[in-house]
Simulated assay, not measured.
Amino acid sequence: MKLRLAHLSDIHFGGENKDAVAAAGERLRTGGFDLTIVSGDLTRYAEIPEFQAATAWLAEAPEPKLVTPGNHDAPYLAWAERIFAPFRRYERLVGPAPWQSWRSGGVAVRGINTARGAQPRLNWSKGQISMRQARAAADWFEPGDTLRIVVVHHPLIEMIGGPMTARVWGGETAAELFCEARVDLVLSGHIHAPFTWPYPHGDGRTYAVGAGTLSVRERGVPPGYNEVEVEDGCIRVTALAWTGSTYEPYRTWALDRRAQA
C-alpha cells in the first residue's frame, strides 16, 4: 500500500495567515494527494463571510476531501444559535457535521464531531465524545479496511507539554475503544501544534497525530500542516512549517504499522 494524505487543521478563516493558506492550497493542487483531511476550525467565529471564504478555498482543493467541524465552527457571538443549532451554518455552507466518511482501496476514514455548542462546564470549547459516537465509528470499519483512520478536532488524550489542553470528556474511553478496533491513526487539531504519539493501549500501534494551524493564532509553532505517507510497514508524518515564503519540514516521525493479518 502507498498512500499520500494532506492533514490540515485550524485554518480559522477570518484570522488566517493568508500567504500560508494560499501556498497550502497550491501544494494541495500539485501534491498528488489521495485524500485531503481538514480536522476542524475552518473559521474564527463561525460568521457567514468566514464560512464563505472557507468554502471558496475548499472548492479549489482537489477531490476527495473529508472535513469535520471544530469548536470555532459554532457561532461565538450568536448565543441562542450556538446553544440550540450550533452547526446549522456549518452544515448549510460546508457539509455534514455529526460524522463523515471515506473509503477506497482498503483505506477507511471516519470523521467524528467532538465539538459542542454548549456543555455543563464553563469552557464549552473543550472536546466531548460520547460512547455512542465512538462505538458507531468503531463498528463502521470493515474487515477489509487495512488502514483505519479516525478524524476528530480535539486530541482524545492530552499532548504532553502542549501549548493548551483539550480535556475531552470521554476521550480516554474512546481512545481505548479505537485501539481495540485496530484504528491506525487518530488525526486531530485544536492545540495549534503538530505531534504524534502512540496510545497507551493494545498493541501500541494506534497513533494520535495532530496538525498545527494555518492561522495567525500561533502558539510557539510556525503556521503549517501535515503530509502523511503510508507504506506497507511504515507511516511517515511530516509537519511542514511556513517560513514566510515557502514550506519546509519542521518535524518528521516514522511510525511502525501493525502487522497485517
Rank of each mutant, 00 (worst) to 15 (best):
R4M: 09
S9E: 10
D10V: 10
F13E: 08
G14P: 06
E16P: 04
V21D: 12
G25E: 01
R27K: 14
R27M: 15
T30D: 03
G31K: 11
V38C: 08
L42G: 09
I48R: 15
F51G: 14
W57H: 01
E63G: 14
L66S: 09
T68M: 09
D73Y: 04
A74G: 08
P75I: 07
W79F: 15
E81F: 05
R82L: 09
F84C: 13
R88E: 11
R89A: 13
L93V: 14
G95Y: 04
P96T: 12
P98Q: 07
W99H: 13
W99R: 14
W102D: 12
R103I: 09
A108D: 12
A115H: 11
A115G: 09
R116K: 08
Q119A: 15
R121V: 05
W124M: 09
S125R: 08
I129N: 03
I129E: 05
M131V: 11
A134N: 04
A136N: 03
A138M: 01
D139L: 05
W140Q: 04
W140P: 00
W140K: 08
W140S: 09
D145H: 13
L147P: 13
V150R: 00
V151S: 08
H153W: 12
H153V: 00
H153D: 13
H154I: 00
P155Y: 01
L156Y: 04
I157P: 06
G161W: 10
G162T: 02
M164V: 08
A166W: 00
W169S: 15
G170I: 11
G170W: 01
G171V: 00
A174P: 09
A174I: 11
A175T: 07
A181I: 10
V183M: 05
V183C: 08
L185I: 07
V186G: 10
S188D: 15
G189F: 04
F195C: 04
T196A: 15
W197E: 01
Y199V: 06
P200M: 15
A211K: 02
G212V: 00
G212C: 00
G212L: 00
S215H: 00
S215C: 03
P222S: 00
G224S: 03
G224H: 07
N226S: 05
E229Y: 10
E231K: 03
G233V: 10
G233F: 12
V237Q: 05
L240H: 13
T243W: 02
G244W: 03
G244H: 08
E248C: 10
E248Q: 15
Y250R: 05
L255D: 02
R257L: 04
R257E: 03
Q260P: 08
